[in-house]
Design a protein around this nucleic acid. Sequence first.
DNA 1: ACTATTTGACCCAG
DNA 2: CTGGGTCAAATAGT
Length: 334
Amino acid sequence: MEWFWPESVLSNGERVKEELMQGRELAGQLCRVFDDHKSTLDSGFGGGGGGSAEGLVDKILGSFANALLILNGKESDDQELVSGDQIQGISSGGGSADSSSWDANHAIIKSEDFHEEISCKSASTFKDRRGSYKRRRTSHSWTRDAQDLTDDGHSWRKYGQKVIHNAKHPRNYFRCTHKFDQSCQATKHVQQILDDPPVFRTTYYGNHTCRDYLKASELVLDCTSPRESSSYIRFGDFKQDHPFFSSLTSVKKEVVIKEEKPQPSDDHMMASHHRNHSSSCDYIVSPHPTAFEYSCPLSGLSSTIDPYDHEGDVMSSLIVEPYYFDDEVLQYEF
DNA sequence: ACTATTTGACCCAG
DNA sequence: CTGGGTCAAATAGT
């Protein structure tokens, strides 16, 4: 498989490293806060060397968000990096990060889509209005070719399959599982383009505005310093006390594996599979572009992506997407 | 019973 | 007019 990387990402490697290192340091502080919390059960999250647990979480999120903004390359020049306070606003607001500075254009897009949906719904007093839609913009998409359909970090639901003219294999259409519960507009389609070896082309449209909270419910920080190795943070416990995570309790208790596996028959592509196992999907941090082969594509990976497509996906990106980070590793386990 | 997938119908852009 | 993207009823799976 292969991702298409803008040059600017490479030049920002050091900045990414700094941001991620800061995030790791803050995470370490958060670990100590939790340790303090354990030792003094009734004291709450007020202690800790670097401030409250909530504040630390906000800073961590801000660091990762900044790294992602930097990775976006061409947007990094004219976009303000996200501060911890902004992240806090995002997280406590319960919505997507539409309020961040980069997204003014996209807000318009979303507004248009909203009106389209309203008009469509209002016009569809009759039951059968199938196929009533406005064709997607073909400009902000990116593609990925792979011999195996590896996990891209998001949950998908198949909603259609079409035989494509002059194509040997049908095209499978997927939308984000959270299209309705979180209004996530991300879609993709997958089509086998080669037989031997089998190569599957995945085309992504739109960014995820959803947050797969449950994937983030258990976070593993693999600290590389000898005495801090493999520290685990279980947000499943933490969220009871954190205003952000406590707001997630209404989310359905399920863990989803986001992976399509080709069937022996070429046109049997599977959508999301539910799973109970939490260890089969480890996420790592790195600035090396090649290491992103197994990650979900960030905006800016392809020349076909429009600037306004950089939705408020900061949270979902930093939570679920894997990054490799030189020989230092931040490892998430879900 | 609930959720996901299948598949033909429908509609729009080119 | 045609190809492609989406909808939603029917069906399958858990």
